[in-house]
């Protein structure tokens, strides 16, 4: 029961402070992993892959996954409800108040500042995931820490993603198949 309350509270916080959608929730979720140890960094990378390749918004999928992994079915439901509660409250308020919300000078200034900060947060989160996916932890030197095959796969994918612009699911499936045969 206490765990469920904690999950609701933590995800409420994420819903309230992650602005901009999509990957914005990732840095906050990563903090949960460090703070409570509810899931490992490896599993976190897998969760992102699964959330990107299953239907529904990534943030919602991630919340369900983390909640379910931590406290079973009630955990999954409670975490998702926690994540969406602030949205519901804020949007219902705004829907009544103003239609010119976006033109408001304060809102524009806040977003001018908040966007680069949010991008920085996502970059930090990605660095953590890169470390796990492409490097061996606690290796003796930089060279021995490199997971060479993974690095080659990573750069190949990077080029493919920037030049082909296909749906993420396409790359995730390709990554899985290549992984089975080569890694």
């Amino acid at each position: 029961m206490k765990l469920l309350l904690l999950l609701y509270f933590e995800f409420f916080k994420i819903g309230l402070f992650s602005i901009g959608g999509g990957l914005a929730t990732i840095p906050f979720l990563q903090e949960l992993s460090v703070k409570y140890g509810w899931f490992s960094q490896e599993l976190f990378a897998d969760m992102i892959a699964i959330s990107e390749s299953t239907p529904g918004p990534i943030g919602v999928n991630m919340a369900t996954y983390v909640g379910y992994h931590t406290a079973g079915i009630p955990g999954g439901i409670i975490s998702t409800l926690g994540l969406i509660s602030p949205s519901i409250i804020v949007i219902l308020l705004i829907a009544r108040l103003l239609t010119h919300f976006k033109e408001n000078k304060y809102v524009q200034s806040i977003f001018y500042i908040l966007r680069p900060l949010a991008t920085g947060l996502v970059i930090s989160a990605t660095v953590q995931i890169l470390k796990i996916a492409l490097f061996i932890p606690n290796a003796q030197s930089f060279i021995t820490a490199l997971k060479v095959k993974e690095l080659i796969l990573f750069f190949t994918m990077l080029i493919a993603i920037f030049s082909l612009k296909k749906n993420p699911i396409f790359y995730i499936i390709a990554g899985a198949v290549i992984g089975i045969f080569i890694l």
Binding site: A45, I48, R115, I129, L153, I172, G179, I180
Partner: peptide
């Protein structure tokens, strides 16, 4: 093995998203 491949792919996908951001 599939998950290792997927993790490397997710890194590349995230870099693409960061580029957009």
């Amino acid at each position: 093995k599939a998950l290792s491949g997927i993790r490397a792919t997710v890194c590349a996908l995230m870099i693409y998203s960061i580029w957009g951001m």
